[in-house]
């Protein structure tokens, strides 16, 4: 790590480096939580690193509201345009690489693991940026119906998604759940990793300086026990996405509460423990990246719409 970046995000007490207040990211802005409460994020030696917003159901409510409002602006963009916007995220993330690595190291990552995770994140963003204008071609269909009709099926965004991020990998795990949804055209409310939220919060800064329209990605920090019931019960959330390793009680809660408005619920694997990350970063991150690069994840967070039209003179 070079000196300059060390200064930028360091928690040291030097005068030219000041600690950051980590806030929610809603509608392209960084509001404080409605409750005004916070929790302390600590390093492995239990030393305070930063205060992070302790959000409540009202923050979820606000985020869902803006996500719903913003949805049209995202899903109506051309696939090419969405691809470029997602690619732009990779450009900006790449430029702030050292900041993410620094925060990960603070949270207990080895430098090697942190570097590899950030590299993998850039790779994953670029990978998914390329899918925006291809999913319809791979998964859509023209259906040869036995009548004088032209009939085709294509994927469309579902709407507002609640994403429950895994604890680790702190950034790759989140992106693995977020990116298929962005490609799909959904707008999202993410519940960030509780114990390792800093990369998620800093990712919000990447989004804020990228071309992603406000309200499409909203990131909320806090305690899962507070936030999961709220998002899974919300009648204006169309889909819940989470990591397979999410605590069984939370998973069951998502499945149960989804019945209220027949939310779709999908879990896929994006979790790697910090121990694994640190002990065998090469292997675990490569495997995780490989399993996250699954275009079927995009398919699962979309709806299939079938259109009929007569064919005649």
């Amino acid at each position: 790590m070079d000196k300059q970046t060390n200064h930028t995000a360091s928690q040291s007490n030097t005068m030219n480096s000041i600690p950051k207040t980590y806030k929610n990211y809603i509608n392209g802005e960084f509001p404080r939580t409605e409750s005004g409460r916070y929790y302390s994020v600590k390093d492995p030696s239990d030393k305070h690193i930063a205060n992070v917003g302790l959000s409540t159901r009202k923050d979820i409510r606000n985020a869902v509201q803006v996500a719903r409002k913003a949805h049209g602006a995202w899903t109506d963009k051309t696939a090419y345009n969405r691809g470029q916007i997602i690619y732009r995220i990779a450009e900006i993330l790449s430029g702030r690489r050292e900041q993410f690595i620094h925060e990960m190291v603070l949270l207990g990552y080895t430098k090697q693991a942190a570097e590899q995770e950030v590299n993998a994140c850039v790779e994953l963003i670029v990978y998914f940026a390329g899918w925006t204008d291809k999913t319809t071609q791979v998964f859509g269909s023209i259906n040869p119906v036995a009548s004088n009709h032209f009939n085709f099926s294509r994927q469309e965004s579902i709407g507002v998604v609640g994403i429950i991020c895994p604890e680790t990998p702190s950034l790759l795990g989140m992106l693995g759940l977020l990116l298929p949804n962005m490609v799909a055209g959904n707008s999202q409310v993410l519940i960030a990793s509780h114990q390792y939220p800093l990369p998620s919060c800093t990712f919000a800064e990447v989004l804020a300086t990228s071309d992603v329209p406000a309200g499409i990605v909203n990131i909320i920090t806090g305690i899962k026990t507070d936030l999961i019931p709220s998002i899974s019960q919300h009648m204006d959330v169309d889909l819940l996405v989470g990591d397979e390793s999410l605590d069984t009680n939370f998973r069951n809660m998502c499945e149960l509460e989804s019945a209220s408005n027949m939310k779709r619920v999908y879990f896929w694997k994006s979790f790697i423990s910090l121990d694994e990350l640190n002990s065998t970063p090469d292997k675990t991150i490569a495997n995780c990246l490989n399993s996250l690069k699954d275009p079927y994840h995009i398919l699962y967070v979309q709806e299939v719409k079938t259109t009929w039209h007569p064919v005649s003179e």
Partner: peptide, 8 residues
């Protein structure tokens, strides 16, 4: 006029 509808 939709010819398919007429035929139906």
């Amino acid at each position: 006029i939709d010819a398919v509808g007429i035929q139906e």
